[in-house]
Design a protein around this nucleic acid. Structure first.
Length: 353
DNA sequence: AAGCAGAGCAACCGCACTTGT
DNA sequence: TACAAGTGCGGTTGCTCTGCT
């Protein structure tokens, strides 16, 4: 059962005699006890020292993995609670497969736990509850500047968003007065398929559980699309999005820790007022983030989250844009909605990239 | 009872990044 | 500055358990 590391292991932990004797496979209770003792002596993180000084015939990596996934005293065992499932749902929608980052937001769970949980139980849920596209998502997408970017790729043929048969095509402007907020539409796959006469492509949606109202990724794309349309505003928008998401996340954590529902925002607050409030409180929000940093025992998770999240959003948008075949000059998609705020000198209706 | 399939999970692998020399 | 070693992370594999036929 227990295997030995082969000599042709490409890992840089090779070519020495002790490596030839390294054990692999499941850990025994005795090994666990030794590792716990060594961590007490050497401190966690000194995996190389632990490997060198202990009688364990395990690599430092293996020790770290065993400790972080099974032996850590703060580790929570047992099935995931419904609240944890919801939290993981939200985190996955925001961060994607950043398991380590997600683990910092889920107390007592390792990245491996969360990864396994997602890969097994959430897949099962996705089979039971196919991904949903809400009316809001369709309308948000089809009315967004990003949709116009896609449409502008096909100047002669309207971009057609393929929807289930019970939903109308989205190439006409959506009528927001006819919103049916409680109605959901189910697609057969976790993607959003767009076609024209000559080509088709698919916008991937992050898998959604029954708890999830939004994939997150689609929102990211739309938000980033909005941000890119507003020249010079993208960084500000991205900051607002991130601050808002961190606040939402903090609220959700509060729900879990205290078992309370957060106060609802005042009825009738417009998006504009909301944004203005966020901008006004931006500095205090950053203060909140730095406070959390201290609460995490010196870990810089929030800062890292911010640093990781921005390029992630960029990458997702770029990957979609890459898959969007552009055969003709791209029309200025921001022309209609944003001309007043951001007039452009060149008025030929096209922009060269 | 035996065989099979799928779910769940522990652990490994390879890559990327950081740190030390 | 270059290289090696150490570390962290995400993806993947493969074993065990369980339920079904």
């Amino acid at each position: 059962m227990v295997k030995m590391i082969s000599n042709n292991n490409k890992n840089n932990e090779n070519c020495e005699s002790w490596r030839d004797n390294l054990r692999k496979g499941p850990w025994t209770p005795r090994e666990d006890a030794i590792l716990i003792e060594q961590v007490k002596k050497c401190g966690k993180g000194n995996w190389s020292l632990i490997r060198k000084t202990s009688e364990l015939r395990r690599s430092g990596k293996s020790c770290r993995l065993r400790w972080s996934n099974h032996l850590r005293p703060d580790l929570k065992k047992g099935p995931f609670s419904e609240k944890e499932e919801k939290l993981i749902d939200d985190l996955h929608a925001k961060f994607g497969n950043k398991w380590a980052l997600m683990a910092t937001e889920v107390p007592g769970r390792s990245d491996n736990d969360i990864k396994n949980f997602w890969n097994t139980r959430m897949k099962k849920r996705l089979r039971e509850y196919p991904p949903q596209i809400t009316v809001q998502q369709v309308q948000h997408f089809s009315s967004s500047p990003f949709y116009s970017v896609l449409a502008s790729c096909y100047p002669k043929n309207n971009l057609n968003v393929e929807l289930p048969s019970n939903i109308s095509a989205a190439n006409s402007p959506p009528n927001h007065n006819q919103k049916q907020p409680n109605q959901n539409y189910y697609s057969s796959s976790s993607s959003f398929s767009c076609t024209n006469n000559n080509a088709s492509f698919v916008l991937p949606l992050a898998p959604m559980s029954p708890y999830c109202k939004s994939s997150g990724l689609l929102n990211d794309v739309v938000m980033e699309g909005n941000a890119l349309c507003r020249k010079g505003k993208s960084k500000m928008d991205a900051t607002i999005v991130i601050v808002r998401e961190k606040e939402e996340l903090a609220d959700k954590r509060k729900i879990i820790e205290e078992g309370k529902e957060p106060p609802l925002p005042p009825i009738g607050t417009s998006k504009k007022e909301e944004t203005a409030t966020i901008i006004a409180t931006q500095s205090s929000s950053h203060q909140l983030i730095s406070t959390e940093k201290n609460d995490n025992g010196g870990c810089n998770n929030n800062k890292e989250a911010l640093n990781n999240f921005i390029p992630q959003m960029d990458d997702e948008l770029l990957s979609i844009l890459k898959n969007c075949p552009i055969y003709s000059p791209v029309r200025k998609w921001y022309k209609v909605d944003y001309d007043e705020d951001f007039p452009d000198d060149d008025d030929d209706g096209f922009e060269s990239w």
